[in-house]
Nucleic acid binder design. Sequence first.
DNA 1: CGCATTTAGTATCTATACTTACTATATTGA
DNA 2: TCAATATAGTAAGTATAGATACTAAATGCG
Lengths: 171, 171
Amino acid sequence: MYILFSGSYFAAMSLKHTHVQHMAGHLIRRLHQSSTQVFAARIKAAGLDLTPVQFAALDAIHANPGADQAGIAALIAYDKATIGGVIDRLEAKGLVARTPSKRDRRAREVRLTEAGESLLTQAMPVVSKLQDDILPGLSPEERTQFLDLARKALGPVDTHHKSSARDPFCR
Amino acid sequence: MYILFSGSYFAAMSLKHTHVQHMAGHLIRRLHQSSTQVFAARIKAAGLDLTPVQFAALDAIHANPGADQAGIAALIAYDKATIGGVIDRLEAKGLVARTPSKRDRRAREVRLTEAGESLLTQAMPVVSKLQDDILPGLSPEERTQFLDLARKALGPVDTHHKSSARDPFCR
DNA sequence: CGCATTTAGTATCTATACTTACTATATTGA
DNA sequence: TCAATATAGTAAGTATAGATACTAAATGCG
């Protein structure tokens, strides 16, 4: 990436450190940046065209065919305004189909098309494989530790998974 | 947040968990999301108007007055296209000033205005204080552990950014 | 039943974030 | 020296990401 290989005069003259560089928010932003770049590179290398967010949406829709957009958004923690655009693009690519819900005339039920299922099947092993490359500076033990802490920091929605029968959204 | 307390039919019917929810990239995305939301809320509560990215840029420019945009970008790991827009907005708010460099006629040197220095002074304690609220589910020990792992994953917090393949600064 | 509230989804606006392409300038190396 | 290359910055295009406001439809409550 450009930003990583900058050779500007000031960079070469070694810029002074800032306060933000020690801060949690900044570290997390950089991790996110790195993670999306690894994803983009690996997906492209596999000959696929999919963003991290689109992949997450496909995965969620695959697991819950016929769910409405709000349900998918809640599952993967997207804003409802954002999910609309994401699904618009997936629909434009022919990966998902939306049908009006009979149960709720406001809602649109979302399902993967054949092409969507196929792409998800292709992408899943690629994405599973790249997870370890997202934190390349860490040993496997440290990586596990980091991810456990991340899950704990995020709260119960992500700490219990498909094995659990509990409803994470019950109020 | 909206997305966390959605009460849609499908959410109430307990959506099935997905593969992405276990994945490093997804966890990191959610941490980033949470972190920016905490920042926005606290800054707004303090009566200030500044995004996390704008704050980081102000801090970097404050520490390196007269640096060019590429230098600032390298320091806080922004894309050069992104930093242009960020500094455009800071300039529009009257927080920074750009002057053509005499050393390099391509470059534009960036400095904080009085208003920029003043705003940074006001914002710094607010931002320092909110760092602990970014990872509310963790104990102080766990938070320290998490941040140490994050720093390790990213490589040295330095102007010399992590670059596993090549070293652009050794010339 | 009727009305207030909530919810599903879209539209619009602002702000990252990165890619490709382009101009202008600087640097390098044969 | 001069041609190849690299860099500074901008521009245009795409894709998140969230705030706000709006329509339409569903729900809750008296």
